[in-house]
Design a protein around this nucleic acid. Sequence first.
RNA 1: GGUCCGGUAGCUCAGCUGGAUAGAGCAACAGCCUUCUAAGCUGUGGGUCGUGGGUUCGAAUCCCGCCCGGAUCACCA
Length: 593
Amino acid sequence: MDIQQSVQQAIENLYGQEIQPSLVQLQKTKKEFKGHLTLVVFPLLKISRKNPEQTAQEIGEYLMKNERIISDFNVIKGFLNLTISSEYWIELLNGIHAEKLYGTTAPQADSPLVMIEYSSPNTNKPLHLGHIRNNLLGFSLSEILKANGYNVVKTNIVNDRGIHICKSMLAWKKWGNGATPESTGKKGDHLIGDFYVLFDKEYKKELAEFQSGGLTKEEAEAQSKLMSEAREMLRKWEAGDKETVELWKMMNSWVYAGFDETYKALGVDFDKIYYESETYLEGKEKVLEGLQKGVFYQQEDGSVWADLTADGLDNKLLLRGDGTSVYMTQDIGTAKLRFDDYPINKMVYVVGNEQNYHFQVLSLLLDKLGFEFGKGLVHFSYGMVELPEGKMKSREGTVVDADDLIAEMIETARETSAELGKLDGCSEEEAQKVSEIVGLGALKYFILKVDPRKNMVFNPKESIDFNGNTGPFIQYTYARIQSVLRKAAEQGIILPGSLPLNVAISEKEETLVQLIAEFETVVKEAAETYSPAVIANYIYDLVKEYNQFYHDFSILRETNNDLRNFRLVLSQNIGNVIKTGFALLGIDVPERM
RNA sequence: GGUCCGGUAGCUCAGCUGGAUAGAGCAACAGCCUUCUAAGCUGUGGGUCGUGGGUUCGAAUCCCGCCCGGAUCACCA
């Protein structure tokens, strides 16, 4: 039964006229007042033609008399606090307990298809903290949309071509002595990253030599031998030179093996991976097509441009004078291939907010080229991750490496757990598993609980402090609930499928049922706002509320069987909501810790 | 300079489709382990919600100006 509708109906009956649903403003009662729901009566004053207190009083009395589910009310200023009967809450819990959907809807064959692009790494260096935020957001968003009944295709566009790759290749060729991941014991992506750094180091050395010889920085750059070798390599690659392509393939395969390890550790995956080396030519074709149709224009040097001044933007280059592609061209090509492959209804790009302009332009260009989805594409834009000591800068070596961070989180989780004696009696295997779940839970939750749009500060120290609003705190609560349920089962207690309605439950317990019921709304909101943070913060609220009561519950020592069963069912469902919610965030939950 | 985003407690963040005395955590201080897991719970102190106007019965929330911070405006990706 819908309380909102009941109250509206009651008000209409009371005053003998129809009213807009927006006038019935029901919200959760604030903690410090008695009641579950509060009706804000200010909007109704015009209809009642009385002052706020009188109006609230009158509506309250009418509801008490005519609505079975309202068991009490009180009036404070213009606020009518309604207490809903215990039977209603027990009935509600029974419904949730029987359905076990927790706000989720399974996708159907004919549900809309959403494609989500996330991660999008370069193949010349390992993943870092910024990628972690990207990956976690992208994966979580996918899970949230799935839970709302969409068909989701997770995709990754790998930037596997360009001058940056050639730098690593060149350095490997010059100074690598045939090093491989096997021979060095390094992860493939780290090995390649090291060569990229080595190139940069040697390049700078070269520049410094030129500059000390009296050249300006620009002149030195123009004369760099290393850079021109790298460019030559790119030309060879584009021309399909066999040796260069073989080297490229080999080194990329090392990087992919390294990325796969990181993705696996993070618990993210993809349904379909695209490579820019396979899409950039498609984009060129599409742009030339647009040129023929007169959507774009060409300058004397042969370069192709889009005029976006009518849309309040600038002119945008799409093909260089020599006919080669730029970033935008590749994204057009990738989009084309994707829509050839899938009947996509909506495209979501999880990309940092430094590319807001790029996606604004991409949306317009795709639209001009006749892609239906162009206008409606979503750039899921997120802010930078900074460190307490300032921005991450690769030059200053302040980049937080993803693999290092993950390893550090797991290690710290293990140390803390061991210190607290939580691992006593665990096998090595169990200890490792718990450490992984907790360490990664800490990292994921810390990042996902923040509004994606905001720049955030990642404090490694704080994130591995397992107190407060953290993943481990929530996981711990879940583990305790499982422990209670285990012990109940050991005592031979079998949970009923449905609870009797006449159990005398406390106000706190009613509040918890109310919170569980709210989860459904939260899951929808998370999908609408594209924000996992909504779910994270909700779960924390729920867990905090539950924890406060946990100490008073004495669930297993309760002598009234009906009340004990109610508390067990309540706990079990809260556990399930935590598990479901964390699954939407891509976070695992331990059975014991 | 144009455009976009942000500014809430010492720190990290919620709250933003307008509603009651602005909430958590961390840090500080004071309590609670014969108890279903103390990675917990309870309490105390801590705020010109960047700023000035406007709309409204009511503004952290909506509108306008300004200040501060970030991003972007490349024949880089």
